[in-house]
């Protein structure tokens, strides 16, 4: 499981890859929460486009981060969610609660290019 995060101007994007199940979700959760505490973003974007597998444990993960951001007065979005993951999110109506936005990856990479806070975390 690998997570890349970009952080700039109070916006933080976390790109998750690999499989999200009950086993992996704990370290992913801890990884994201650590970054939230570190960077205190106003907006958190979870990029789920590279997720190869997700089951209902991912719902807890996503909703938990959403709650956390809201508690700190922030916002959270999902981005580039793939069909498969969307199918799971829809089952719990999460797609209605958390907005899914389309992001241009190239744009994001450029946007965040000269940011020293970028990190590649192996979790």
């Amino acid at each position: 499981m690998e997570m890349t995060s970009l952080n700039k101007d109070g916006k933080m994007v976390c790109c998750l890859s690999g499989e999200i199940d009950h086993h992996s979700s704990r370290s992913i959760r801890d990884g994201i929460d650590r970054l939230i505490i570190q960077n205190r973003p106003k907006v958190l974007v979870l990029d789920l486009s590279s997720i190869a597998f997700m089951d209902s444990s991912g719902l807890g993960l996503v909703l938990g981060r959403y709650r956390k951001m809201r508690e700190c007065g922030g916002e959270m979005f999902l981005c580039n969610t793939n069909e498969r993951t969307l199918k799971i999110l829809k089952m719990a109506g999460v797609d209605k609660i958390i907005k899914n936005i389309d992001c241009d990856k190239e744009f994001m990479r450029n946007e965040y290019k000269d940011n020293s806070n970028d990190s590649q975390t192996q979790i």
């Binding site: 209902s56 807890g60 993960l61 938990g64």
Partner: peptide
């Protein structure tokens, strides 16, 4: 039932509904 869980806030209670569908 959807959303029923005894597992605390990390669980979503969507396991059985997902298996079903």
């Amino acid at each position: 039932e959807p959303l029923y869980t005894t597992g605390g806030e990390d669980r979503s209670g969507m396991g059985f509904p997902i298996m079903q569908s």
